[in-house]
């Protein structure tokens, strides 16, 4: 009796149950998306955003004298150190590599107006996968020293605007202006280009 009625009306119990199941499954899946969205915090301040302002004094980033001002007189030709702007050492995007070369070593695309007496500064974040770059000093010819990232061996030429001279890095490292102020150094500009991995 009951079954007969159902077929006449077109909607059977079986169809109804199936419809409810499909609808609730669709609802469950839809809610999954908002759940996943909650679990993936937004990109606010994503990537490397530097907070360096012109006028910030350079301080050593590591070692025994970490936090104290960089001494210009302590660096000779072919030396490099990792530095931070003073008081802003918690942001990894602020890490900078300060290099001492000869004024005459610089070639385009180095921005010579952002250097001072052979001091040139670049972001210390490799543009490949975000490791901190290292300094490979050429003791025989200090002007030919290079910046290398030891993670995947990307190499950059500090005398030529940190252009990529080997390895997988896609773009040069951005330069930042510095000038000598007494025996210490201060930043004079923002980064000339994007810093950190370009993904």
């Amino acid at each position: 009796m009951v079954e007969g009625n159902q077929t006449e009306k077109g909607i059977t119990r079986r169809k109804f149950t199936l419809g409810v199941m499909i609808a609730s499954m669709a609802g469950a899946f839809a809610s999954l998306f908002s759940l996943l969205k909650v679990l993936a915090p937004a990109s606010k301040g994503a990537g490397y955003v530097s907070t360096i302002k012109p006028g910030d004094r350079l301080v050593y980033a590591k070692g025994g004298n970490a936090g104290s001002p960089v001494k210009a007189s302590s660096m000779s030709l072919g030396d490099a150190v990792l530095v931070y702007p003073v008081g802003k050492t918690s942001n990894p995007a602020n890490l900078v590599q300060l290099i001492k070369l000869n004024e005459s070593d610089f070639k385009a695309p180095t921005k010579i107006n952002l250097t001072d007496q052979g001091f040139v500064a670049y972001s210390a974040i490799c543009t490949h996968l975000g490791c901190t770059v290292s300094w490979v000093k050429n003791t025989a010819n200090p002007s030919a020293s290079i910046t290398e990232c030891f993670c995947h061996n990307s190499m950059f030429d500090p005398a030529k605007g940190a252009e990529v001279i080997g390895g997988p890095a896609p773009i040069p490292i951005a330069q930042i202006g510095v000038k000598i102020n007494g025996d210490s150094l201060v930043f004079t500009s923002d980064f000339t280009g994007p810093i950190g991995p370009q993904v």
Binding site: A61, K62, L82, Y84, P92, L95, A124, H128, L129, C131, T132, V133, S134, C149, F150, C151, H152, N153, S154, V164, G167, P168, A169, P170, I171
Partner: peptide
Amino acid sequence: PAPGTPVMRPDWYFLWVYGFLKLIPGNLS
């Protein structure tokens, strides 16, 4: 954790990906 990245390699079972990353030219994008 400190600023600066020393020379380091992953455990052997990730070396293939690590090594391949070194082989790809940077301008290939």
